[in-house]
Amino acid sequence: MMHRKIILRIVSKQLIPFILLFALYVQWHGDFGPGGGFQAGVIFAAGFILYGILFGLGTLRRVLPSWFTRLCLASGVLIYSGVGVAAMLMGGQYLDYDVLSDDPVHGQELGILLVEAGVGLTVFAAMVTIFCAFAGRDRVTPRKN
């Protein structure tokens, strides 16, 4: 198995770090250019999905154990709703980022950054989880009638 698709394997091994780096750029540069949590999460997941397609689900699961992706899946949503609760605790309304910092504009920037991080984490984990669920399923031979 290891000697097959050698060009694909080597080229994608070189590419995957750049895909992940690009995803991080899209995540943190989304305030200034096109991008944001949704896109970054998908691109980050695409890097790992490429890895999984070429090196097998077992190898992918050694890099990203299922407990880890499930943790990411839940913590992304938790970060998002947590920002809302934090705003309430600091005297504002739910998801009102103005109160997160002394300066409302800084508060907004911080809130948007955290919320986008939560979105990115959930989207990334959801895509990897869904891919692994499909890849890990065995093919069933059709039932004879």
């Binding site: 989304g30 305030d31 200034f32 250019g33 096109p34 991008g35 944001g36 949590g37 992304g76 949503v77 998002y80 709703s81 809302g84 998801l95 980022y97 409302p104 504009v105 800084h106 907004q108 920037e109 809130g111 948007i112 919320v115 986008e116 939560g118 979105v119 959930t122 989207v123």
Partner: peptide, 25 residues
């Protein structure tokens, strides 16, 4: 002026329509 984010899509997505995006997540 209100959010300090030049990409209007990001500002609307995460701040003005934060509830919406929370639901989508």
């Amino acid at each position: 002026e209100e959010t300090g984010v030049p990409n209007v899509v990001t500002a609307v997505l995460a701040s003005y329509r934060g509830y919406d995006t929370l639901g989508e997540t």
